[in-house]
Design a protein around this nucleic acid. Structure first.
Lengths: 216, 216, 216, 216
DNA sequence: TATGAATGAGCTTTCATTCAT
DNA sequence: CATGAATGAAAGCTCATTCAT
């Protein structure tokens, strides 16, 4: 269903459509964005879009599914390079996640907010990818719990909580804002560490109290 | 501006509109919901809605603003009854927040997701209320930090993180699900406590390791 | 068809409807005036109008037909008091017409401009009354022509021309304007006199040249 | 503001819209004409109109403003060819005006009757053009008055009277009627001449009494 | 007599999509 | 590959009118 129009993917015009579409869906929402707006933003007439995409729905699906594919790929890469212990893997996951969300806040945002605009088939495909991603975190949490370094009341609920917390970043992150991405990453790595850390274990690598002031 | 249509507020029909509107906006989004659908759901003809609301936008604003008003009021009540120490206040805030989000997950969801569908004037009014709410948490965090019982890298970022984490609950909470609201509240109170807890202080009131397993 | 609602004519509310309706139709036109506006102007709710009128169309018909009836009656009165010679009758007619148009400019205006908004039956009734009125002028012109005091190329065309000229007054007359109604009447009586006056006859009662300057 | 839809002006479809729009507005009035009617008259579906006009209001404005532009241009041409003396210029103006009104009675009619349907900005633009046109006549009248060949009580009032008189023609002129356009023009040229003629001057060029009967 | 609410029909406008050129 | 034009459907909203209270 909805095979992409032959030969158009990757062309300059298609990339312009993708870029403008991403921004418009991010700013106004899929339903509120009209193809007239999209076309006029890139100097085309409405009907000309159909030389590059086959439907509006397809454009949304491309944006979301390619983002999810990239997210999964890069998460795997980041985790391959991470240290083996769960605490290190968790920090690596959070650091990767934060940075990826900051870099691609629009893709991240619409991949959440426009799920319901996907047609059933597309919806299911994306939800499956989301679950793959969530599973990566759940596995880390479970590993840490079974090694006794994490205290995890409920791995799924905790994973959802962590992911929600990090997803929120892309709604307020501002490249010109008070906090650098490095600072943000550090803050959230630490927040997550604290949230799951097993306090019966000895403290390690916690930054000295008060140092956080330098972040502000 | 946009005073509610005289004399209709509180009537049975108006309440039916509010209820169906809430559900439809939650399920499909404001843009995707048509007033024809809404009307037919409550056994009216489209035009009859206008005896009760003056515009579609007004309906959205009523739903969101009344929710925010209630949220602020109930948060104040919950905090009045809370113990004075920051750790107790934080737990009370999180517990209140989680429960309120579970009870009114649809209002909570649309108050986030449909912010961008609000006209400028309405948008500003709601954003001001959101900031009032966030401030309540930020003040608790700052109080705990200054008393030395919390480690807070950046109160605003941490507050946003906590609120995002909790907001996520209403996207997956299911009354018939595996976890009760009481369990969920306990899990997240503990997650938040850990996230901000000052580890140089002695541990208090941390549930014994492993007990959480009984939650599942 | 469309008998006026029993017992409402002449009441204070009905008169308020008539007055507001006259103004609104004059300002916006029959099609553009909504009964909601009309009702709200007199402190009623839309549906309440129907205790006083039976349809919007009826209101228009009442306004126009009663105006035409009055116009005919007053024209007859004015002509009864006029001198018998055609030139005097013509002056009397013009003077009456101008003053009546100035006094009731809104009735006059809508009786012209909203003819097409009348349903066929009503339309025909009004057109018949218009013709009665026009006939009064045509008869004066013909009398003057047959007595040799007027030069009338075509009585009907000339009558239409005169009536159109005078009807225009109510589009620009302003009680606070530069010209008084007395001045306006004098100007147009003289214009009409000149337009039809037989120049082979001796001049009579023409104001001295230059006196017109005092009108300004 | 309201630039005409690019590239459609002058096409066959646009001309069909203009033509049908002119007729429908003339027959029913702007408010009473629906775009559904208009579209179906030219074999289009409602929405297709928007490939050629951007709003209903724009269509009205095009019809009126282009008419006014043409009216002004042709009036200038007619006056350029006219003899220099005011009496000749007045006759030329009236002759032009009558013929133009007969030729384009629908444009003329809606340019008067639908003024109030114009949005403020458009309204002002048209009123300015109307004043330009009226000024042409006023200048002729003033010139004749200062040369002593016209008796003009008040140039503006007289100009309005003349224009109203002539405007009325387009409400009753019928190409198959009793009077030809040539006859109508002659009648009104003579009416206007008489209305403003200075009777203290010797009579010139007045048609012999009774000859007018041959017009009927 | 006034009212709030309902109705069915209608309005202008926008939408995603198609297609001949 | 781009365009102008067409389409059917649907959008939010207003209308005159009715009616139980």
């Amino acid at each position: 269903m909805m095979a992409r129009t032959q030969g158009s993917s990757g062309t300059a015009t298609f990339e312009a459509i993708r870029k403008a579409g991403l921004r418009l869906i991010y700013e106004r929402g899929y339903e509120a964005m009209s193809l007239r707006q999209l076309a006029s933003e890139i100097g085309l007439v409405q009907g000309s879009l159909y030389n590059h995409i086959s439907t509006k729905q397809e454009l949304l699906f491309i944006l979301i599914s390619e983002h999810m594919r990239d997210l999964l790929q890069h998460a795997d890469l980041a985790l391959e390079e991470a240290p083996k212990p769960p605490s290190g893997r968790l920090a690596a996951f959070v650091d990767f996640h934060v940075n990826y969300h900051i870099d691609r806040k629009r893709e991240v945002f619409i991949s959440y907010s426009e799920l319901r605009s996907l047609e059933p088939k597309n919806f299911e495909a994306i939800v499956a990818m989301r679950k793959d991603y969530e599973k990566k975190l759940i596995l880390i949490l479970k590993a840490g719990a079974s090694e006794g370094v994490f205290t995890i009341a409920d791995p799924q609920a905790v994973a959802f909580g962590i992911l929600s917390m990090l997803a929120g970043i892309c709604t307020w992150y501002n490249p010109k804002g008070r906090l650098s991405r490095k600072q943000i990453s550090a803050i959230f790595v630490e927040l997550v560490r604290g949230a799951v850390y097993d306090r019966t274990s000895p403290l390690v690598s916690r930054p000295a109290k008060g140092r956080a002031g330098t972040l502000v």
